[in-house]
């Protein structure tokens, strides 16, 4: 009885959680202006999204491109910066280590709006006008802490003598880095990269404050502008559905990877 009640509670909650998303996905397969009016099954919203026939197709597709370009660049730089930093922090001791770890936590604790505003003020003070560069720098700022934290466990698990041995056997630090250290921490780097990529795509508030006024739009700022005008462009329902499944697949990959890593360590 208890078991049935518990399961019923979980499934009821899941139903509530997924109902809104399910409605959007359902209505992405009909060519109607608003949700709630069903005009027969069709792929029209998807085809017009990709063919660029939607009302604001040009802006939607440029928003998608911007989002992806920013995410790839920010995730790549964060992964490199964060991995090197993790090695450094791992070998640090005492107060300086505490200080850098504390600072590393700040972007994770701060609400997005504070991160966004603080960076906005930085760029204003430096006289840098908002655009690609500022958005990418801002994304690196909130992505890198997560990379550091996903590389750290790999360093704790590895035998640090291997790296010393490589140096003793005549490897240069860069050889030892690329041939010994990187293969050891690679799983953490890949998880960190995927995480940074997802965070960057997902971001709204920080992008809004750092994108400047030159018309740079990412998906989330575009959706915001669109929703503000009242009503969602129908094609966005198709887009939300695609994003939902992409995130689902990415998350499954991350979880399979991490459970494999756990098993490997046992």
């Amino acid at each position: 009885m208890k078991k049935i009640l518990s399961k019923a509670y979980l499934y009821l909650l899941l139903l509530v959680i997924y109902a809104p998303i399910a409605i959007i996905i359902l209505y992405s397969f009909t060519d109607s202006k608003s949700i709630g009016q069903w005009k027969g099954f069709s792929f029209n919203l998807y085809t017009s999204l990709f063919r660029g026939e939607a009302q604001h197709a040009a802006t939607i597709s440029s928003a998608i491109t911007n989002t992806l370009i920013i995410a790839v660049i920010a995730a790549a730089i964060s992964t490199i910066l964060g991995s090197i930093a993790a090695v450094g922090i791992y070998n640090m001791r005492g107060k300086s280590r505490q200080a850098i770890q504390f600072t590393n936590n700040i972007p994770m604790i701060n609400p997005d709006i504070i991160t966004g505003i603080s960076l906005f003020l930085l760029f204003v003070s430096l006289g840098i006008s908002g655009g690609y560069v500022t958005v990418v720098l801002a994304h690196i700022t909130f992505c890198t802490p997560y990379v550091v934290l996903s590389v750290m466990p790999r360093l704790r698990q590895m035998n640090s003598n291997i790296y010393e041995a490589a140096l003793d056997l005549g490897a240069t630090p860069s050889q030892a880095f690329f041939k010994v250290l990187v293969p050891e921490i690679r799983p953490g780097m890949i998880s960190g990269f995927i995480l940074a990529f997802t965070l960057s795509i997902d971001d709204f508030a920080v992008t809004l404050f750092t994108k400047g006024s030159n018309g740079l739009e990412t998906l989330s700022t575009y959706i915001y502008a669109d929703a503000r005008k009242g009503g969602l462009t129908p094609e966005l329902r198709a887009l939300v559905s695609i994003i939902f499944f992409t995130v689902l697949i990415l998350l499954i990959i991350i979880n399979i990877r991490s459970s494999r890593m756990e098993k490997g360590n046992r």
């Binding site: 450094g88 922090i89 850098i100 720098l137 700022t141």
Partner: peptide, 15 residues
Amino acid sequence: SNWAIPYALFLALFV
């Protein structure tokens, strides 16, 4: 431990 220096500078400037 010096490898953390670039990131420390980055944190100082951007956080």
